[in-house]
Simulated scan of single mutants.
Amino acid sequence: MSARTLLATAAILCVPAVAIAQTAPTITSTVTVGFSSASLDGIPGANIDMTTTTLDMQNDIAFTPNINVGLDFGMSMTDIDIAGVPFSVEADLLSFAFEPSYHFGNGAYIGVYYRSGDLDLSIVPLPITLGVDTSQMGLFAGYESGPLWVEAFYGTSDSSPSLPGVDITDYGISASYDVMPNLEVFGHLARTDISLGGASIDLTAFAIGADYDFGNGLSLYGSYGMLDVGIPLPVSIDADQFSIGLSYDLTAAGSSIPALLSLEYTSSTVDLGPLASIDVDSIGLGFTIPLGHNGSLTPLNSSTQVARGQYRSAVSGTLASRR
């Protein structure tokens, strides 16, 4: 899928969502437009730079006090430039999530989720394009009361083209707690088991983060995450990531339009054992707008979204944190 097609799709989806959010108080929406620049070190003889533009939208539709439907949309376009190479790589990712849920009125709720992803890799200016479609579906259950929120999930993942004889299972838990009115802590643990006939690959992702509101429009947030990959080979593969960001609510400066500006630094290290150790440093910008009733001012392009439990797969969460 080309970048032009992705932008057209995003525009078609965003226009009606904005209109609905302005007229229906039972719809909560948040939109973030983001940009990031990253450099990759650790591959011998290669100097790699990446620039990424993102558009993310989260919608929560409350049909009744008990029935909610979440509709999420995400788009990212990444240009990968390798010094000394006469071509570049473009990676376009389009994602969609559908999550209906039933709330019992005592803080407990249950639901089902479906998330799809369309990844296209193009080599420019060569006429070479590779595409992979992924999907995740499953069940989740949670409890939210006062400052506490906790949720567990279980599901499966698939891909197209499909891999014969491969079964993928996802499960995990997420939680957050408001320690005080201006301090929130949150965490996420996800496990993805990939069965390859007689062999298996296990991915375990863990992330924890916090968000502190200074009360003058400024907020400081950050997270730390780890990924451990268990493979049937005498090679250890793991990764870790640290991110810290600063956001500012424009309404604190007298703006009549609620919006948030954010700046975030992220540092990642991927350890491939005796093969290589890759470091990725990136700087990201975000512009977030809440739409409708009580929209969130959390930047959706932040790496802390993994620690907040936004992704129900160790694989998709890891890829999203490195956009």
Rank of each mutant, 00 (worst) to 15 (best):
residue 144 E to C: 00
residue 64 T to N: 03
residue 74 G to K: 03
residue 90 E to I: 06
residue 89 V to N: 12
residue 149 W to G: 07
residue 82 I to S: 13
residue 104 F to G: 07
residue 60 D to N: 03
residue 153 F to R: 01
residue 156 T to E: 07
residue 162 S to H: 14
residue 146 G to E: 07
residue 78 T to V: 08
residue 53 T to E: 10
residue 56 D to Y: 09
residue 68 N to H: 14
residue 125 P to K: 10
residue 64 T to P: 07
residue 51 T to K: 14
residue 156 T to M: 04
residue 63 F to C: 03
residue 106 N to Q: 11
residue 84 G to W: 11
residue 165 G to C: 14
residue 82 I to W: 02
residue 126 L to C: 05
residue 95 S to V: 10
residue 80 I to L: 14
residue 161 P to L: 04
residue 56 D to H: 06
residue 51 T to M: 05
residue 104 F to C: 08
residue 58 Q to M: 08
residue 133 D to W: 09
residue 136 Q to H: 13
residue 89 V to P: 04
residue 96 F to N: 02
residue 142 G to P: 03
residue 120 D to R: 10
residue 52 T to D: 08
residue 84 G to I: 04
residue 146 G to L: 05
residue 159 S to A: 10
residue 121 L to S: 10
residue 97 A to Y: 00
residue 119 L to N: 06
residue 50 M to N: 09
residue 55 L to D: 00
residue 53 T to P: 00
residue 121 L to E: 15
residue 61 I to S: 00
residue 118 D to N: 11
residue 133 D to A: 09
residue 163 L to N: 09
residue 150 V to N: 05
residue 152 A to T: 13
residue 139 L to I: 12
residue 74 G to P: 08
residue 105 G to R: 06
residue 161 P to N: 04
residue 119 L to Q: 07
residue 68 N to K: 12
residue 162 S to L: 08
residue 57 M to G: 00
residue 164 P to D: 14
residue 147 P to V: 04
residue 98 F to G: 12
residue 92 D to T: 12
residue 85 V to H: 09
residue 71 L to V: 10
residue 54 T to A: 12
residue 82 I to N: 09
residue 54 T to Q: 13
residue 136 Q to R: 14
residue 160 S to N: 10
residue 97 A to L: 03
residue 59 N to G: 05
residue 158 D to T: 11
residue 137 M to H: 13
residue 138 G to C: 08
residue 161 P to S: 05
residue 89 V to F: 14
residue 53 T to G: 08
residue 125 P to T: 08
residue 50 M to Q: 14
residue 137 M to Q: 13
residue 87 F to Q: 12
residue 57 M to E: 01
residue 51 T to G: 12
residue 67 I to A: 05
residue 72 D to W: 03
residue 130 L to K: 13
residue 98 F to W: 01
residue 82 I to T: 11
residue 133 D to P: 08
residue 165 G to Y: 13
residue 153 F to L: 03
residue 141 A to P: 02
residue 53 T to N: 07
residue 60 D to F: 01
residue 64 T to W: 02
residue 158 D to A: 15
residue 137 M to V: 02
residue 113 Y to I: 05
residue 100 P to H: 07
residue 92 D to R: 02
residue 154 Y to W: 13
residue 60 D to I: 00
residue 74 G to Q: 04
residue 54 T to E: 11
residue 95 S to L: 06
residue 93 L to R: 08
residue 128 I to M: 11
residue 135 S to M: 07
residue 164 P to Q: 10
residue 73 F to M: 01
residue 53 T to S: 10
residue 135 S to N: 15
residue 97 A to K: 04
residue 103 H to Q: 10
residue 64 T to S: 11
residue 90 E to Y: 08
residue 114 Y to W: 15
residue 73 F to Y: 14
residue 56 D to T: 01
residue 161 P to Q: 07
residue 148 L to M: 14
residue 142 G to H: 00
residue 83 A to Y: 11
residue 65 P to R: 00
residue 126 L to R: 12
residue 116 S to M: 15
